[in-house]
């Protein structure tokens, strides 16, 4: 059975016609065409599909598209503030080489965004805890942590 789901994606009102069995992840990728959100394990273990729903990060693979009715969804495509500008996290990830194969990067960026929104000056332990649901199998996390710390400093400097 199909249903029409009305929701807000990256600030824009959208509607999608989806099968009621479809995950939010598959709907975003295949029906809406936002393929920035990645499908890693599809069972909630890897965090590659992390999106922010009503302000809270969730695994898009563990949510049905029909459950997003009336909700606000933020994906990695909505992270950059303008066409020619990057979010400080994206910029820092590039400068620090915090992305190797890149598959985990969209999920980690969304999780890091939420982390810095809630806690602008995270400790190493805060970052570890914040990213504990995101798995990277390439870089070993050091550069990812460096990039997040660097972005935190830049965002703080920009605010003051």
């Amino acid at each position: 059975m199909k249903r029409i789901v009305e929701l807000t994606i990256n600030g824009e009102p959208r509607d999608m016609t989806v099968d009621t069995c479809r995950s939010l992840l598959d709907a975003l990728r295949d029906d809406v065409g936002l393929t920035g959100t990645k499908k890693g394990c599809d069972v909630g273990d890897c965090g590659a599909c992390t999106v922010i729903v009503d302000g809270e990060p969730v695994n898009a693979c563990l949510m049905l598209a029909v459950e997003a009715e009336g909700r606000t969804v933020e994906t990695v495509e909505g992270l950059q503030p303008g066409v020619d500008t990057l979010h400080p996290l994206q910029d820092a990830f590039m400068r620090h080489g915090a992305s190797q194969c890149g598959f985990c990067t969209p999920g980690i960026l969304m999780m890091a965004k939420k982390l810095l929104d809630d806690n602008p000056r995270p400790t190493n332990e805060d970052i570890r805890f914040g990213l504990s649901g995101n798995i990277c199998r390439c870089t070993g996390y050091t550069k990812i942590f460096d990039a997040i710390k660097s972005a935190a400093l830049e965002m703080e400097a920009a605010r003051s």
Binding site: N59, G130, G133
Partner: peptide, 9 residues
């Protein structure tokens, strides 16, 4: 339990 993302659901 699980991860932050899992606990939010």
């Amino acid at each position: 339990l699980g991860s932050i993302q899992v606990r939010n659901r």
